[in-house]
Amino acid sequence: MNIFRLVGDLSHLLAILLLLWKIWKTRSCAGVSGKSQIMFGLVYITRYLDLFTNFISIYNTTMKAIFIAVAIATIYLIYFKFKATYDSNHDTFRMEFLIVPVGGLAFLVNHDFTALEILWTFSIYLESVAILPQLFMISKTGEAETITSHYLFALGSYRALYIVNWVYRYYFEGFFDLIAIVAGCVQTILYCDFFYLYVTKVMHGKKLSLPA
């Protein structure tokens, strides 16, 4: 474990708790893409299947359990409890356009042709594009609530910090995983224009609004 990965994990935890809190407090999931949340739920479930079989550390097990629980709770709030506030007219990104190619790629490009490894690879690839419906929804509505932009900033920062973690681990531990690194770079690149808007607008107290 290194500081970059620890801060990254905490940023990730902050992001998902922030979103859950926003929906719970405002009792509304307006501006939140349920499709992205479903895909994040899929990401955690397919990646953390070894939750009960492969113990690494208390920290690892606890965080995996929290991520899965919060993802399920968020999906529940969006599609059941506060379903009336779910903005399905703007959450129109076709998930199958992401899940099918990602599933195919996981079969073709992986470290090991075993069920667990292919599911882990699928999870890594899916996570890199899972935010697209959310970014697409913001581009359609032209704006995002400030708390939602904080959520996106924390979520985008987590994988950017993981990239620094991978550089660190390459130089100090001689460790690298090309699949995770390439997918992590794609994921972080997808946030770039949002990061720009966040820094230039939200940091100056303005609402995040895309140029119409």
Binding site: M63, H111, F176
Partner: peptide
């Protein structure tokens, strides 16, 4: 292969 201990990452 180095990817062995990716699995210690979240």
């Amino acid at each position: 292969k180095y990817s062995e201990d990716t699995k210690d990452e979240l």
